[in-house]
């Protein structure tokens, strides 16, 4: 920019400062995240698995619940082979189970349920956690003390047992499973949000906002929530695998998703029962699940590194 010679030195500095592109926290974080190869690879793999899950019905000629007694416990095969009974009608890429259902399509349907549970239950926990934590942190005082006391008590409960009781009492309701797991996972979220709110509340920019006449609700919405988002997002990516794990755990024990619907936990449980004769029933779902959990953990770690301002160069 051409500086008119008449401008004072201070004015020149101000004009120059307007030229500098501001780097927001989010721009920085995105750049750092994209530099993290493990995280980027994980995002790609996860996207592929998610797409496979979404388009599962169109990716395989088989239905997830069709039983075909001419192809019982077939081993995996890539190409149809008219000479082999198992593959005469078409190849089963991941083999079939003991009642002739295609493992490939079942694994993808399992991905649908597991991912859906993962995201929905995490969302439930996010809503409860943010509302609870932000309220306790921002209002503070006696109310904060009381609310956090409740969280402390709930923390010491063996919660998975209560989810099990819920599933026993309400007979394995699909929706309830989502809500129950979400209701278990919100505690840590609430603590994180509260802690962040407490520290942000003291900052000068909140004071400035209040001084310039912003209301409590506006301050929470415009200033508090955007600033607590960093740690929350990190925790969300780490909650999703925990939720997927919890659902699979219940399904593995026979307390989660019911037949003919399936999830990775159900498939792994079935596979574990058949592994002497049909190890592919165990290996493929276990592989999909492990890869997904790995990816989510790597993304979570990557996000944490990216959003941690101490890492800023």
């Amino acid at each position: 920019m051409v500086m008119p010679a008449t401008l004072s030195r201070n004015a020149q500095l101000i004009v120059r400062a307007q030229d500098i592109q501001g780097r927001s926290l989010w721009v920085d974080a995105r750049r750092r995240l994209l530099k993290n190869r493990a995280a980027v690879a994980s995002m790609i793999i996860l996207a592929v698995i998610a797409l496979l899950a979404v388009f599962a019905p169109w990716l395989s000629p088989y239905a997830y619940d069709t039983q075909d007694y001419s192809v019982i416990s077939c081993s995996p095969a890539w190409w149809p082979d008219p000479n082999v009974m198992c593959n005469a009608g078409g190849a089963h890429w991941f083999g079939t189970d003991s009642i002739g259902r295609d493992i490939f399509v079942r694994t993808l349907y399992g991905a649908r349920v597991s991912l859906a549970v993962g995201f929905v239950a995490t969302f439930v926990s996010l809503l409860i956690g943010i509302a609870y934590g932000a309220t306790a942190g921002f209002i503070g005082g006696k109310l904060d003390e009381l609310m956090m006391r409740v969280v402390d008590v709930l923390y010491s409960l063996p919660f998975i047992f209560f989810v099990i009781i819920l599933m026993v009492v309400f007979n394995r309701n699909f929706l309830l499973l989502f809500v129950a797991i979400g209701a278990v996972e919100w505690l840590t979220m609430a603590r994180i949000v509260r802690g962040q709110t407490l520290s942000i509340k003291q900052k000068e920019f909140i004071e400035a906002a209040r001084a310039s006449g912003a209301g409590t609700f506006d301050i929470i919405r415009r200033h508090i929530i955007p600033n607590v988002m960093g740690p929350v997002i990190v925790y969300v990516t780490l909650t999703i695998p925990a939720v997927i794990l919890a659902e699979s755990f219940l399904s593995f024990l026979g307390l989660g998703i019911q037949e003919p619907l399936t999830s990775w936990g159900v498939l792994i449980s079935e596979g574990a029962n058949q592994m002497e004769t049909a190890p592919w029933m165990l290996i493929f779902p276990a592989l999909f699940m492990s890869v997904t959990l790995f990816c989510l953990n790597f993304i979570g770690d990557g996000l944490r590194d990216a959003l941690d301002p101490r890492m800023r160069r």
Partner: peptide
């Protein structure tokens, strides 16, 4: 941390038992 107990248990069973 990532691979759950109900995956490692059958896999180890498969390797060392079956």
């Amino acid at each position: 941390i990532t691979i759950p107990t109900f995956v490692t248990a059958p896999l180890l069973t498969l390797i060392f038992g079956v």
